[in-house]
Design a protein around this nucleic acid. Structure first.
Length: 111
DNA sequence: CAGTTGACGGCCC
DNA sequence: GGGGCCGCCAACT
């Protein structure tokens, strides 16, 4: 009985593909998952986060580059600190998307 | 089965 | 410039 890969699974796939030291926005994940309209679904999917061990939800931020309040898994501060440890640049509590927003294309150029 | 919600995004006022 | 509303789709109750 295999469960069909629902929208959630597709989103998880994308999130798991986020390289260390980078972050992605809900909208971007939704788009990579197949539809950018899933932005809300993405939030829901990460909220469910059935496998946080493989789903770096802390690398997922809103379009502002800030983790949501509900992100709190020990403190929003905790999340930011973790990202900083991965090499993510921060801008007054928010991720510097200009530099750390994950891009499938830029990732190729990273070499 | 139907209604409500939801860790968002974008546009309008 | 800031705030509010709607829209999208799926999952949850």
């Amino acid at each position: 009985m295999k469960k069909e890969p629902g929208v959630f699974d597709q989103i998880y796939e994308v999130v798991k593909q986020i390289p260390r030291g980078k972050v992605a926005t809900y909208g971007q994940i939704a788009e990579l998952a197949g539809n950018r309209r899933w932005a809300r679904v993405v939030g829901y999917a990460l909220h469910a986060n059935p496998d946080p061990a493989n789903i770096p939800c802390h690398r997922v931020v809103n379009r502002l580059g800030e983790p949501s309040k509900a992100f709190v898994f020990g403190g929003v501060n905790r999340q930011i600190e973790l990202l900083k440890q991965e090499g993510v640049l921060f801008k007054d509590g928010a991720v510097d998307l200009e530099v750390c927003q994950w891009s499938t294309r830029s990732d190729r150029f990273m070499d």
